[in-house]
């Protein structure tokens, strides 16, 4: 199925100093929802290096087109964009045939969710979610509208920068990742306590998608490029590897 040979075995250790800490008090909800005790560091067993496998029978071709997958009477309102990129691992190897799911607010910053009561209106032609499976070289593409910024209850006047939530599986359950993609040039990024759960500026930069004019479609839509990096898998040189390890 895949043209890319994938070595077996466990994943590189996750860099917990690069990832956000559990407790980030400026993001208030994290205070009561963050574990205090140290995690148990566990070298990957069969349970961690395996994970669910998805195929094209699980999804439909239109699922990655948010301009059309919920359209009732017309395309949704908003700035039309393509979001595209690759899912790679830390060794720059493509992650093929993996499920990528996204969700977002509409162009006015309103989510189609029973719990969202922001005053911006629901767009009758926009659901706000999509999904796709990467190709054999790890590429994925979505078409959507650029989401709007919206206020949220944290400090009195907090606004989320425009963002798209992205969920990726990879080939093992310990690669499982949910993140958010931000847009180049958005002045709200630097002010956001959720963004600032990341302490390394390079980590924040890695979540900001650049405008990609080469992928824009003239007279139709702009494009942003966003590569997603999952943990690499160790190679097993010179290793005694008892069955099942």
């Amino acid at each position: 199925m895949t043209q890319t040979p994938r070595p077996p075995a466990e994943f590189f250790q996750r860099d917990r100093t690069w990832q956000p800490r559990a407790l980030t008090p400026d993001y208030k909800t994290s205070v009561a929802r963050s574990p205090n005790l140290p995690m148990l560091s566990l070298r990957g067993t069969l349970s961690e290096i395996t994970g669910p496998v998805f195929g094209h029978n699980d999804i439909d071709p239109l699922d990655n087109d948010l301009l059309r997958n919920y359209a009732k009477t017309s395309d949704p309102i908003g700035e039309r964009i393509i979001v595209h990129g690759r899912v790679l691992d830390e060794t720059a190897r493509p992650v093929p045939h993996t499920l990528v799911e996204i969700w977002q607010a509409n162009a006015g910053g309103r989510y189609r969710h029973r719990k969202d009561s922001y005053l911006a209106p629901i767009d009758p032609n926009f659901g706000g979610c999509g999904r796709t499976i990467t190709d054999e070289n790890g590429f994925y593409t979505f078409r959507t509208v650029k989401p709007g910024a919206y206020p949220w209850r944290n400090w009195v006047n907090n606004w989320r920068p425009a963002h798209i939530h992205i969920s990726v599986f990879g080939s093992g359950f310990s690669q499982r990742l949910i993140t958010q993609m931000y847009f180049e040039g958005d002045p709200l990024i630097a002010k956001c306590p959720i963004v600032n759960s990341l302490t390394d500026p390079a980590a924040i930069d890695q979540l900001i998608a650049p405008l990609d004019m080469n992928a824009a479609v003239p007279l139709d839509c702009l494009a942003y490029k966003f590569d997603i990096i999952l943990r690499g898998r160790r190679s097993t040189f010179f290793e005694n590897r008892p069955e099942g390890n």
């Binding site: 990832q19 969700w103 989510y111 189609r112 969710h113 706000g128 949910i178 924040i204 990096i229 999952l230």
Partner: peptide, 17 residues
């Protein structure tokens, strides 16, 4: 090596996706 994409919270509206 590339670096793993940093995680961000799934947020309150994770169900949409």
């Amino acid at each position: 090596y590339l670096r793993e994409s940093p995680s961000q919270t799934a947020g309150p509206y994770v169900h949409i996706g």
